[in-house]
């Protein structure tokens, strides 16, 4: 039996600032993981990633990251992705600074 598909979000970095962004269901790049579209279907995930890849004037380095539904929307599974939702741990910089977690 094929392994169950782990739900995904499409994430990238904003072209100019490099800030972490997530693709929403209505095709907006949000800076907030909880607003991302949680993709439960593998084929749909590939289509969404293709769409992200075509937006070369807005984002860079799009990829699919594992996620799961939480109380306030999709949340990351791996610690690397959790750090990307916040920013570094040594200073309150990045998303912590903007109050945009």
């Amino acid at each position: 039996m094929a392994r169950a598909f782990i739900p995904k979000v499409v994430t990238a970095n904003a072209l100019i600032e490099g800030d972490v962004v997530y693709l929403t269901a209505d095709d907006i790049w949000s800076r907030n993981h909880a607003e991302a579209e949680l993709i439960e279907d593998e084929a749909h995930a590939q289509l969404r990633l293709l769409k992200a890849d075509r937006q070369r004037d807005r984002v860079v380095g799009a990829y699919l990251a594992d996620a799961r539904m939480g109380d306030h929307g999709p949340e990351p599974i791996h610690f690397r992705e959790a750090f990307r939702t916040r920013g570094p741990s040594n200073y309150a910089h990045g998303k912590q600074e903007a109050g945009n977690v």
Partner: peptide, 28 residues
């Protein structure tokens, strides 16, 4: 040219790296 979209990231990456510019986790 990268900002205008004339260069793709694949085309631009080696050019930016030659000039010390990386893309990291949260920013360049």
């Amino acid at each position: 040219r990268r900002i205008s979209g004339a260069l793709t990231e694949d085309e631009f990456r080696p050019l930016r790296l030659m000039n010390g510019l990386y893309l990291q986790l949260h920013a360049y």
